[in-house]
Design a binder for these strands. Structure first.
Lengths: 224, 224
DNA sequence: TAGCAGCTTATTGTATACAAATACCATTCG
DNA sequence: CGAATGGTATTTGTATACAATAAGCTGCTA
């Protein structure tokens, strides 16, 4: 899309992801226009896009708010994601090219290096992990599916969860990718789907455990 | 949303569904603005929405075209729809209220009357069928899921397929709804999901059969 | 005649002014 | 004191003019 409306989109999206705009906070077109250095017109464009991607919700009288996600919303997103990514893996197993397989291997190797380094490089892990899943989606060859997955993956809350991984889970993640590659090698869609389902569901429970830990700490603080 | 942009949205959507705008045809904002009797601003809003709903696609230089759907696209849409509606049915089985169950029964009774009348009332069937599925979705209680399903159901091609049903399939459809109700009565999510999967997949094959018939006719015509 | 340069036209993108709708607040009435 | 009512401020919606960009054409050149 065009320059100004792209800038507005990126700017607002980053403000949401960074927490500069808080969940539930009302946002006004004119204020955003000033922050982005453009007029309201491209801001409105950007807001429409962000609304479609569920970063923003609008109330009955068209006022915009930063979306806030409940725990139920989060579990729902993970369930949908598990289902959709499993479906993607099933399709990918039948369609993946040699080149795509090689790229998957390359990214998973990079993940291995990132997490076995003396100081684990989490941003590098996240980046290669993202690209790994993007290639599976590319191999699935369904634009509609890709669009739907974007909706459940690119959510603020889901994005933040990746940082909850500890070393044990980073290794497990790498291993699951490896198993997925073997399933792909054997063109076994059901196996690939099963591996992917477990992969995503474990990610959810990692987050859920981390979150309940937070709750415990909070309760402890209150008790102290 | 607002009056003018709603009018533009409905108008353009209807033009696409009615075939007044042909698949693949380029559409220009100004021309649509005149047709809808509004300025380009609300038309642009409407186009953004229709693009998100895959009624319209845009090329690399932002020109808009009426989306055209290949057979592969259609099968892909049906597969996704089957998966998502099965998921909706599974969730609904655990959450559905007595009131919602009663409404489902009522709509399925209306379907029964529509198809057993001396002259089957297909529009009535389609309307109650739509409401039946809407209630299942409502019972599933997932806004995100609802949004995704809208994307794969409200497509021009998919909408037209419903009219391919013959009497035999209308009766089967009614019977499957009935079975779904029993699964709901028993709060059996897996059963509900299985029934719904079959329900949607049969819809696809009804369409596919009708379409291959068309192809045969076309080939016969060419041969003649 | 194929292909390219530059101009012309068509189309979309952006800014701005104004209109419409909604929320907010104060005031009044029961 | 609470609820309803009205007016004012705030926010979004729409129209329009203009800017930027892409497409298409014309005529030139090899």
């Amino acid at each position: 899309m065009s320059r100004a409306s792209d800038r507005a989109y990126d700017h607002i999206r980053n403000m949401i992801l960074s927490g500069e705009l808080s969940p539930g906070e009302q946002i006004r077109e004119e204020a955003l226009a000033e922050l982005c250095g453009v007029s309201r017109t491209p801001v409105r464009d950007a807001l429409r896009r962000l609304e479609a991607e569920l970063f923003i919700r609008r109330n009955e009288s068209q006022r915009s708010f930063v979306a806030d996600w409940s725990l139920d919303d989060l579990e729902e997103a993970f369930q949908l994601r598990a289902m959709l990514e499993a479906y993607a893996a099933r399709r990918a197993a039948k369609r993946i090219s040699w080149d795509q397989l090689a790229r998957l291997r390359s990214h998973n190797d990079a993940i291995h290096h990132a997490i076995t380094a003396p100081t684990p490089d989490i941003p590098k892990f996240l980046d290669h992990n993202r690209q790994f899943h993007a290639i599976v989606l590319e191999a699935a060859g369904s634009g509609r599916l890709a669009g739907m997955l974007a909706q459940v993956i690119e959510q603020p809350v889901v994005l933040r969860t990746a940082k909850q991984y500890d070393m044990e889970n980073l290794k497990r993640s790498h291993h699951e990718h490896d198993e997925l590659l073997i399933a792909f090698d054997n063109r076994d869609g059901e196996w690939a789907a099963a591996v992917m389902t477990g992969h995503i569901r474990r990610a959810f429970h990692v987050y859920a455990a981390a979150h309940s830990g937070d709750a415990d700490i909070r309760r402890t603080d209150e008790a102290a």
